[in-house]
Amino acid sequence: MVDSKQQWKAWLYLAPAIVLLLIFTVWPIINTVVLAFTEKYSTLANTGGTSFRIGFGNFTDVVGYSGFLDALKITMILCVATVPISTILALLIAVALNAIKPLRKALQTIFFLPYVTNSIAIGMVFNAMFNMIGKIGIRRPKIQSFGIINDIIRFFGGTEINWINTGSDEWANILVLIIYIVWNALPFKILVLLGGLQSINKQYYDAAKVDAAPRWKVLTRITVPLLSPMIAYVVITGFIGGFKEYTSIVGIFGETMGPPHDAGRLNTIVGMIYDSLENNLVGRASAAALILFGIILIVTLINLQVSKKRVHY
């Protein structure tokens, strides 16, 4: 315990951080809650001295909004699909990286690259990879160039797929997004899991050898359980990140949040929040943010509950 005479010193040292947090974190949170319950709020009118009605109007607006359920659906699909895939892939890659000696550092760097690269830039690269460009003619469009993915498909004798351009199907769009998000989520997960793997006592693996455990059993019965705290962490943060999905869609499809012929098709909840802000509907944006917070809270609680049973020691 800090001596009570010394306590003011402790507060003094904490002051810069506390002040910054109060201004940039705590106040905005409070303000968001206030705005969410303030109906038909407008900054301009507020400055003019107008008073607003307090109520649930913004929430009913959000839920009643035609795009809300679609946005929720897209968000959910992206979350549910990408978190397990990226976690399992990251686990396998981390185990493989941990097992090799030569080139480990080089490969680690390569796998870590997406983490330090701007996601909009990556989105644009993905856009180019999945693109079909240069449609000529309207009645009988003649495609002149493909992105590398379609080149590969054609090389193996398949037919090109319209991934993201005008006329593309929603499943194709979502597939591209899943690939992008999984790839983008890998580095952080690999990093965390690799760190976890390296802290596992090597003697357990020697013991497993003595016990003649086959490889897959070592992975499922020893590595995964011993890594379970890290896996739980990665899954929970993965879900939280997944519910906030937005930049990936902007990166690939642009601000239209969908292919040109169906703008907004891939909108997510965060996308909705930005839309509301752009339309000066601050109250509705705040309400949507609170709803998103509620969803993330519930999902995280469920996650924690599940991991309590699954995470060992």
């Binding site: 006592n201 357990y204 016990d211």
Partner: peptide
Amino acid sequence: LVFQNYALYPHMTVKQNILFPLQN
């Protein structure tokens, strides 16, 4: 082999620890 630090699998019960080599 009995290791110096025993290397018992910490996530398994005693029974599971002893069963593990048998299951393999």
